[in-house]
Design a protein around this nucleic acid. Structure first.
Length: 426
DNA sequence: CGCAAGTTTATTCAAACCCA
DNA sequence: TGGGTTTGAATAAACTTGCG
């Protein structure tokens, strides 16, 4: 059912093994050395990075597997049996749940090797959910409640959205669930406990992303959809990853363009940018959901020669969104690393600021600086990205893409065409 | 875990507006 | 002035991120 796009056990052990790094060692994103020296050099510069991504990589990559429903059910049953066993032992106890930590101290960064992309992933630090700890008991119950629901879903072989789960849980167990956020986190807890993907649990997110442009896609037993004739709303990217997996894709595009904001996406779709320059436009309307990242990843695998270019605001959040496409994220680190893509930064960048009128510069808020700070300390930015971010912070100002509209609505696509023709992306 | 922030959409309600 | 439409604000819903 799942194939080449989704690495399995074998991939993770061979893909990140010491041997396969060969003489290249690690291609650090911060030091562009090309040979054996890079190991030494990078070890002295960024020891943590090297440690995590080179020397202990096999053991260190902790991930969620994509499993058929029967195996997920088996894992839930094992969890129940474990629980019963300690309860039934000579010294009865309620066992804690041990799950993979999703805190930044358990995150690692893997530098891109030849033909591979960089990504964030999680290692093997654990945290617990315990009924016995005063502040923790509800979280413990929540995990079991969600697991129970998952088990029912899996038996029926259905898919539910997180929203649906939320409504169900809030009516069934209002003592334990009060917000969508709690449900989403608990779902991630269950993933970290069972180490299987969200999709495997029968849970998906609501649709969010859109695609438009030079792309023909076909769902099983459906008509072929031509994404160049869909109007500005485009094709809605379903939250169902297994359906995305089965999409049949054809394209004569030369570029894939990732757009941060829906408003910009609609502008470009309406102006038919893809007629000017053969491309596929994709957006997730803000921080990308898993489905959109997955589709982008599938596109990049299906059409490996197409550069992926990102159009984001000139502010730290814009860069953070770009990085989420490029490297994945910590909070969903058990599966997000799979869908990391080699995204290039098209705009807005420092070079473009001359096009921006004075009044469109907005002072940064403390929040912006906070985001900038966390990006800076993440160790994942390559030199050029660091420079951009530094100048952003030093200027203390931010710019929305919409600022380009002072030159007219048509300016936006002309600007993109020019940037692409000049190969002005990093 | 709660909160704030980023990106959205949809719905509701009231004020503002226009026309007969 | 009554009745209809347009606008804008507020609220809720959704998916994320990260901080303390």
């Amino acid at each position: 059912m799942y194939n080449s796009d989704q690495p399995t056990r074998q991939d993770s052990s061979s893909g990140y093994s010491l041997r396969s790094h060969g003489r290249w060692g690690i291609l650090s994103s911060r030091s562009n050395h090309r040979d054996e020296e890079s190991q030494l050099d990078c070890e002295s510069v960024i020891p943590d990075l090297c440690k995590s991504s080179l020397f202990y990589s096999d053991q260190n990559l902790c991930y969620a597997e994509i499993l058929p429903p029967s195996e997920v059910r088996a894992r839930i049953e094992v969890a129940v049996l474990k629980f019963l066993k300690t309860l039934n032992s000579p010294s009865p106890a309620i066992s804690d749940l041990s799950l993979v930590s999703r805190r930044s101290n358990n995150s690692r960064f893997r530098c891109g090797l030849l033909g591979d992309v960089s990504s964030i992933f999680l290692s093997y630090a654990f945290c617990t959910r315990s009924l016995m700890k005063a502040n923790d008991a509800k979280a413990f119950i929540r995990v079991w409640k969600v697991m129970e629901l998952c088990y029912q879903i899996l038996i029926q072989e259905k898919q539910v959205t997180q929203r649906e789960l939320f409504y169900k849980l809030i009516s069934d167990s209002p003592d334990y669930f009060t917000s969508q956020d709690q449900v989403n986190r608990t779902v991630q807890d269950v993933i970290a406990l069972l180490r299987c993907s969200r999709q495997s649990l029968g849970i998906m997110a609501s649709t969010r992303g859109s695609v438009v442009g030079r792309l023909l896609l076909q769902e099983p037993n459906q008509e072929v959809v031509d994404c160049s004739v869909l109007g500005s709303a485009g094709y809605a990217v379903t939250g169902d990853l297994s359906l995305l997996q089965k999409l049949d894709l054809h394209s004569d595009a030369r570029y894939i363009i990732v757009v941060e904001k829906d408003a910009i996406f609609q502008r470009l779709a309406e102006d038919r940018l893809f007629d000017q320059i053969p491309c596929i436009l994709i957006t997730a309307k803000g921080y990308p959901d898993m489905a959109t990242r997955f589709l982008l990843h599938r596109l990049s695998k299906s059409f490996p020669d197409l550069p992926i270019l990102a159009l984001v605001d000139w502010n730290p959040a814009g860069l953070a969104i770009l990085c989420t496409y490029k490297f994945g994220s910590i909070g969903m680190g058990l599966e997000a690393y799979r869908y990391a893509c080699n995204v290039k930064w098209l705009g807005l960048r420092g070079d473009d600021l001359q096009l921006i009128p004075e009044h469109a510069f907005i002072p940064m808020k403390p929040r912006d600086l906070q985001v900038a700070q966390s990006l800076m300390s993440s160790n994942m930015l390559q030199d050029k990205y660091q420079e951009e971010l530094t100048s952003m912070v030093q200027g203390g100002q931010r710019v929305e893409i919409e600022a380009l509209y002072v030159h007219g609505y048509d300016f936006l696509w002309k600007y993109i065409v020019r940037k692409i023709v000049q190969a002005s992306y990093i």
